[in-house]
């Protein structure tokens, strides 16, 4: 019952975000700032994680490849498939739920606690539009981040393979190009867009509607992380079912 109430309020929030828009020049500035905070600011850590995950995928594939009949180029193939299909879109989004998600919840939540949201409202500004709309727009750039992450991850696999003597550079690239299905990339980016929307809105919801004081801001960030992950994992399953099978 409480869950349904949350869903209802979340839907109303999504709708209200687009009503009574803030002055365009102000919105532009806010969008730039959010893009910088949420996307550019996440580039370093996600690229770092991705580089090493690509390397580990290559290493694991190689370690489990003891049948001489299976070509070594499988390492390139496996790295590509796992990075593009799941690792870059899904795993990185779960990381982002921790990084960007809890940042959004705690920053909006502390504005709630210190009555800054009330101050916006009393001025006749739509706080939902002012606070959340720029985040949604900023996260429309999320697929660009994920595209970079895909390259970095595959690069990590390549470096680990070649410098770890798992497979030759030629074989890795052969594997990389082996039975490539362009739709997989389309599928990955559709997922990424949905995850971006989840990353912008669920943490905002938890921050915006929180009650209490500073302690509750911390609790709200944790709850928000859990629900953002749950939403990502479930929609990942649904989208894969719809788009790939």
């Amino acid at each position: 019952m409480r869950f349904i109430r949350h869903i209802g309020r979340y839907m109303i929030m999504l709708f209200s975000v687009f009503r009574r828009p803030t002055k365009t020049s102000v919105l532009k500035e806010l969008i730039l700032k959010e893009t910088d905070d949420l996307i550019i600011g996440s580039l370093g850590i996600t690229a770092f994680i991705s580089l090493f995950m690509g390397a580990v995928v290559a290493l694991q594939t190689s370690l489990n490849l003891d049948n001489p009949l299976i070509p070594k180029s499988l390492i390139g193939f496996a790295t590509r498939q796992s990075i593009i299909l799941e690792f870059a879109p899904t795993f990185i989004s779960v990381i982002m739920a921790g990084k960007v998600g809890s940042f959004i919840t705690s920053s909006i939540g502390s504005m709630r606690v210190t009555e800054q949201i009330d101050a916006l409202e009393v001025m006749g500004i739509n706080p939902l539009n002012y606070l959340i709309f720029p985040k949604i727009i900023a996260l429309l750039f999320y697929p660009f981040l994920i595209a970079i992450i895909m390259f970095v991850g595959i690069g990590g696999g390549y470096l680990a393979s070649v410098y770890g003597n798992l497979v030759s550079s030629e074989d890795f690239i052969i594997g990389l190009q082996d039975s490539f299905i362009p739709w997989h990339v389309g599928y990955a980016f559709i997922k990424t867009m949905v995850f971006g929307l989840i990353l912008a809105t669920i943490p905002s919801y938890h921050g915006y509607y929180m009650e209490g004081g500073a302690l509750e801001v911390g609790k709200a960030s944790t709850t928000s992380f859990v629900w953002t992950c749950v939403a990502i994992i479930i929609s990942n399953y649904i989208l894969t079912q719809l788009l790939l099978s």
Binding site: T114, Q116, A119
Partner: peptide, 10 residues
């Protein structure tokens, strides 16, 4: 409106 705890945008 002047809020009790100021509510300045931090």
């Amino acid at each position: 409106m002047l809020f009790q705890h100021s509510a300045l945008f931090d």
